[in-house]
């Protein structure tokens, strides 16, 4: 069974030889091939090389095209700052929609128009060409809350929910259409799965989440499913207050960050939801040793049960010791999903 088959089999409820392994690596992957992060984020060949090298070295079951939250915003004309050894970032005090009225004239950029989205799509295509038969290829898009924060400025968006809810809805509407097009192009390029990152959604609390964010996330997820791809939901941070709503999104994989216990996720999301996580990326993966990684992932597996994929709560930090990633791999490689079979 290769990585791609393993993940697909688990998701479809078929038997698998061992637990799938899908940690998020970005800066770590760039580091593995000695690339600087600016190149990793802006040149799809560097990204594909880093992802494939890392996935093969540590026997991950997938490769992924996430690098920073600014791809879509960059193509919308936002001011982006690039760093040699850090993810690109949006310059918040010059946000693209600092003036709300600019939304009316903002055109959805063509994902294949030669910008940063296009670069992400090229990364998908190259990964599919090189390893698409053995490893699952996962594309990436931003969720409504995260992308709205990127375009409007996160501090301002938080106030907009109260100051001008109609604007927020218009903005989310725009974003969903843009993200569906971006997802479509990645799926056309061969992506098996689309990762949906909606980091800022963990900040707004359950009421705003349910009323504003959820309906748009749902629309996006349903749209991607209709295109025939899988969806992995990744909301960093403390999602405990919104776990129940997240379950109703019907994503194929839900990541939980270390602040949201898997046990609680399992309880709120039912026995069938595939959960991924939630090892503390910093305290355990980066600062811990192999023994701590092993005992932590074993406990995660126990809490999540057999609908489980091995990974950390969020990105594996770049200076994580390789032994710790090896330990993560070794646990996955030596355990079947059903603890009784292992």
């Amino acid at each position: 069974m290769n990585g791609r088959e393993r993940i697909l089999a688990l998701l479809e409820g078929r038997e698998v030889d061992r637990l799938p392994l899908m940690p998020i690596t970005m800066m770590f992957a760039a580091d593995q091939i000695g690339a600087n992060y600016r190149d990793y984020a802006t040149d799809y060949r560097v990204m594909a090389e880093g992802q494939i090298f890392t996935a093969e070295k540590f026997d991950f079951d997938y490769v992924n095209t996430m690098s920073d939250p600014a791809r879509e915003a960059a193509d919308c004309g936002a001011v982006i700052e690039y760093f040699d050894n850090q993810p690109a970032a949006i310059v918040e005090n010059q946000a693209r929609l600092a003036d709300k009225t600019d939304l009316a004239s903002l055109k959805i950029p063509d994902p294949l128009g030669g910008g940063r989205m296009n670069n992400g799509i090229n990364a998908v295509a190259l990964m599919v060409e090189k390893v698409g038969k053995e490893k699952l290829v996962e594309g990436w898009i931003e969720g409504p809350c995260a992308e709205a924060a990127d375009l409007r400025g996160i501090n301002t968006l938080m106030l907009d929910f109260y100051d001008d809810p109609a604007f927020v809805r218009d903005l989310f509407e725009f974003i969903i259409e843009m993200e569906l097009r971006f997802a479509r192009a990645q799926i056309d390029a061969g992506a098996d799965s689309i990762g949906l990152g909606d980091a800022a959604a963990s900040l707004v609390g359950p009421q705003i989440y349910e009323e504003f964010v959820w309906p748009f996330e749902k629309k996006l997820i349903d749209g991607i499913h209709e295109m025939g791809a899988l969806v992995r939901l990744h909301i960093c941070g403390n999602t405990r207050p919104i776990l129940g709503d997240m379950a109703r999104l019907k994503c194929d994989i839900v990541d939980l960050d270390f602040l949201a216990p898997l046990e609680e996720g399992r309880k709120k999301m039912g026995p069938d939801q595939v959960l991924l996580g939630n090892i503390d990326p910093v305290r355990v993966m980066r600062n811990g040793n192999a023994e701590l990684v092993t005992s932590t992932v074993a406990e995660c597996h126990r809490q999540a049960g057999k609908r489980y994929i091995v990974g950390a709560g969020c990105e594996i930090p770049y200076d994580t010791p390789e032994e710790n990633i090896q330990a993560l791999h070794d646990y996955a490689a030596s355990h079947r999903p059903d603890l009784d079979d292992s």
Binding site: Y162, L203, V204, G205
Partner: peptide
């Protein structure tokens, strides 16, 4: 105490 969240906090701060 998770009785309110970041938007409410920022509104009060403003």
């Amino acid at each position: 105490a998770s009785e309110c969240f970041v938007p409410e906090l920022l509104l009060s701060a403003r």
